[in-house]
């Protein structure tokens, strides 16, 4: 089983969010980056579980600059076999998807796994685009993955229940919460990660199809108004007259 796991970096959830250069650039000063949790906890860990049970190889792929290498080393410390960094500045989702697809197209991966979204941009579209570009089946938001005799069985959470899907041949999935449990690297893994191969390949030619205009922070939270539980009428009046939401 040959598995490609695509990982992105994301700011730690405790980071203070600020922008520079006229609100066109995320201010990385003092920000701690982590492996995007959906990529790490679910996609990578499940890929490793499958490899450990059935044999094979798990390759990490990131699209980004040298600043990606700490999170790639972490993924190797958790247990991936090797890694590839496509040396390109991330821009929009289609650009990233084209880089991944271009790299993966002739490598014969059985499964290409991504997290369901990054926790900073929340686009959720890269894996679908990769599948389209490679003309492969795509199973989004999978919460369970089993592979037996070349047939992959996946579960997806759908409105009011679960959907079970079978796929034969190569495919792309996006992993959602539930597919696996977070795995903390151990010291043996950290030591092994020092010498695991990390290949840097140049960016593939691709157009950026959108242009970022600016970022804005959400409006500051207003003061909290407490209404006595006995005064439901006041609540309705305030929602109607002041908040104007009903």
């Amino acid at each position: 089983m040959k598995i490609l796991v695509c990982i992105s970096k994301a700011p730690d959830t405790t980071s203070k969010i600020a922008f520079t250069e006229g609100n066109t650039k995320f201010d990385e000063n003092g920000v701690q980056f982590i492996v995007n949790p959906y990529d790490e906890w679910y996609a990578l860990v499940r890929a490793l579980e499958i490899k450990e049970a059935q044999g094979g190889n798990v390759t990490i792929l990131s699209v980004g600059g040298a600043d990606y290498e700490p999170i790639i080393r972490k993924a190797l410390a958790i247990g991936a076999d090797d890694a590839v960094r496509i040396d390109a500045q991330e821009s929009d989702s289609l650009y990233v998807a084209k880089q991944i697809a271009e790299y993966a197209k002739d490598k014969g991966f059985d499964i290409i796994m991504c997290g369901k979204e990054t926790i900073n941009y929340n686009g959720s579209v890269v894996p679908g685009m990769v599948a389209e570009l490679l003309d492969l089946p795509y199973i989004p938001l999978a919460v369970k993955l089993d592979v037996n005799a070349g047939v992959a069985t996946l579960e997806r959470e759908v409105n009011g229940g679960l959907e079970v899907v079978e796929v034969t041949g190569s495919f792309v999935l996006s992993a959602a919460k539930g597919m696996a449990e977070q795995r903390i690297p151990n010291m043996r893994g950290i030591m092994a990660a020092r010498t695991k191969p990390l290949q840097v390949v140049p960016a593939f030619a691709a157009e950026t199809s959108t242009k970022l205009v600016s970022y804005d922070l959400p409006p500051a939270k207003g003061a909290c108004k407490y209404i006595d539980a006995e005064q439901a009428g006041d609540l309705i009046r305030i929602l109607h007259e002041e908040a104007k939401v009903i």
Binding site: E69, P70, R73, K74, A77, I184, P185, N186, M187, I190, A193, R194
Partner: peptide
């Protein structure tokens, strides 16, 4: 080093 940070985060 990055390894120090990985050890700490672990």
């Amino acid at each position: 080093t990055e390894e120090h940070k990985l050890v700490r985060d672990t």
